[in-house]
Design a protein around this nucleic acid. Sequence first.
DNA 1: CGGATCGTTGAGTTGTATCAAGACGGGTGG
DNA 2: CCACCCGTCTTGATACAACTCAACGATCCG
Lengths: 244, 244
Amino acid sequence: MFRKWIFKLDRFCPLSSAERDALQGGALRTEQLHRDQDIRPAGDATPACHLVVDGFACDYTVLADGGRQIVACHIPGDFCDLGSFLFRAQDHSVAALSTTTVAVIQHQVLLDLAQRYPRILFALWQDTLVDMAVHRQALINIGRRNAYQRIAHFLCELCLRLQAVGLAQNSVYDLPLTQADLGDALGLSVVHVNRTLQLLRAAGLISWRGTRVTVQDPHGLERVAGFEPAYLKLHATDAMGLSP
Amino acid sequence: MFRKWIFKLDRFCPLSSAERDALQGGALRTEQLHRDQDIRPAGDATPACHLVVDGFACDYTVLADGGRQIVACHIPGDFCDLGSFLFRAQDHSVAALSTTTVAVIQHQVLLDLAQRYPRILFALWQDTLVDMAVHRQALINIGRRNAYQRIAHFLCELCLRLQAVGLAQNSVYDLPLTQADLGDALGLSVVHVNRTLQLLRAAGLISWRGTRVTVQDPHGLERVAGFEPAYLKLHATDAMGLSP
DNA sequence: CGGATCGTTGAGTTGTATCAAGACGGGTGG
DNA sequence: CCACCCGTCTTGATACAACTCAACGATCCG
């Protein structure tokens, strides 16, 4: 269950084999959800975290006027409500964006692990720091870039993240989002997302048929987006080598 | 030095007196910076964190086209580069927004504290979770609200945060930001910030003379902003009571 | 007094939203 | 197997929020 997470973690916080074994140890319950089903509604106090094993999930909030803002996307290997470990109830909801299976990890299990293996505690904290960096980039994206660049940036980021867990090859990946979802994630209307995607296609940067995204010109797309992947901490050089 | 931070922390993660004493223990070096001076430039690997003691700081990134996005504001009692504890170099810069003094805390000191008092480790992690919640709100703000609501939300948030550390009374506080800073934080142009502020003043919601902000109608402002303060974890009920 | 920074105004432009309606496609039930 | 429906994608027309450029006023400070 933790496999993809550990794999991702290896880039910036390699664990010892004892630590890995401890994580892989107990069998975990999994749950399967379908699109639009909540994994953890806002305010829910379930004493467990969820790790995406397969499919896509997102953090979202709906405003008084009915508008929805997606504030984060979770792919396999991501915790989707790690914060609940320290603050039970979250102020936003987490939902599945496609048919999704998640592993359920009781907080108590996490706590035991953290106490026996302090490095795991640091690893978890580092994980939330990476999520935070993703949020910062999203802020820059929405705050300072136009629709064309925003979508380009989003697609670049997802491509790299999926690649990091083996779910994208040659810049081709499966993206089960509707254009409405994309709009909600990037602060754009569906109509505008549609027109902008057509521009990206016309420019020969991407193709997107059904749920299959192909980044035809990765460098071009990154240039358009002003994409700087360092924040994802995907390279071993980012490791700090903390030794507690 | 840690006084305001502990004070803030008390709301969601009260420390024992031994833990407090440990924090207050060593004398810390402080630094004073003037407006626009970097506290930690992007990529800087200084092995120390900075805690704002007085003044305002911000996290920002400047894009290729010269545009600047401020992704976070730090007030007294906030760590402004806690993430550097686990990932030395940050991908964004931290700068003073006014004349600001910060306490310098060596990572080693933090590490020693964390090892001796595990609760402090949890407290630090919780601190980053709150910062993350602030980012999420900023995303919602920029992604889904118009200029009028955005500015209102920003002013509401700062009012509460400053109040929490004793720097705002009766919804009056000192805000040493220029309108350009506000624009960079909210993804708006200076001109538009200016005009929108005039609307907020005309509506009798706020007044802003020099650096002095007065929220004349707190409820009205919150209503306009759709402000929901729970994410700031300002109330004792948010505490989880972790006991490691 | 001159220069720098910040706030304010006006005029014109553009990116993006909104509304409305049609096209396409997949699934379901008769 | 067809008819129908629903969700999604697509297109067109129009409206408006926010941007840009440009200039001027107000402070503050050396």
